[in-house]
Nucleic acid binder design. Structure first.
Lengths: 136, 136
DNA sequence: ATCATTGCAAACACTTTGCATACGC
DNA sequence: GCGTATGCAAAGTGTTTGCAATGAT
């Protein structure tokens, strides 16, 4: 818990109950949740929590660089706590999102065709290991 | 125009005025438009066109594989006429989306960590050539 | 006491659904 | 004439905004 507060302070975000819980959730459950999923996961233990606060908080966190907002597929925005750069793989059968090692793709130059690259988002889609098993 | 009809027929889609115009638009203007952009672009010459039809048509086209639906950044869905695989680069200054050659990134295996890869979406974000000029 | 955060309600934007009408073979 | 495509209106999602109440220092 201490560490969550430290992360907030380090990023110029005043700690609050709501902010701590939301960040804690994203640090503990790396399931790339949507705002709605976070809201429902926390609503039980925080009955007065509002969806607005979840949206506000996610926006603040994203602006301050604590979180990454992902547009993987469809028009759902998902959030994840910033760790090492990696690839997202979404299974079209079970909809689970896996994190894969970035080294599978190689590209490190910061200039392509004269454009300055600041972010790389690599999203794969297919059938995951588990669902493949079931197919046979 | 003939060629548009051929594409529709080849993909088991019955040609209609609306479908022809929408596909024609996507073939001619490779601007990765949203459903709304397409609707507004065509509304002038087709006053009775409905947004529902645009949505229906884009859905049909995507299902039949004529178009690709892109979730590049944010929760906007954009469409493009299927051509060769390529990378999307979005400029954070002017919001323009550029198509880049896929060969910049190399990854051709269809299995990663046991997961079967069916689609690859590589989305880059940064400052484009033109906007870089203006910065100096 | 002051300033920021929270949270309700309403607004908004985008997309889908239900259904009656119109079109094309 | 029959089956499909179209398009209006309404409903459904996901997200943002306005603003009053609350909380922290």
């Amino acid at each position: 818990m201490r560490s969550i507060i430290d992360i907030l302070k380090k990023n110029d975000i005043a700690p609050s109950m709501q902010r701590i819980k939301i960040l804690e959730y994203l640090k503990n459950y790396k399931t790339h949740p949507t705002a709605d999923m976070i809201y429902h996961a926390l609503a039980d233990e925080m009955p007065t929590l509002s969806k607005t606060t979840v949206y506000n908080t996610l926006k603040t966190f994203t602006e301050k660089g604590v979180l990454m907002a992902l547009s993987i597929f469809g028009n759902e925005v998902r959030y994840e706590y910033n760790t090492n750069p990696h690839i997202h793989f979404k299974c079209i059968k079970c909809n689970k999102i896996y994190d894969l090692d970035k080294t599978y793709f190689r590209y490190d130059d910061e200039l392509i065709d004269g454009h300055k690259i600041l972010e790389q988002h690599i999203n794969l889609k297919g059938i995951c290991k588990e669902c493949l098993k079931g197919e046979k």
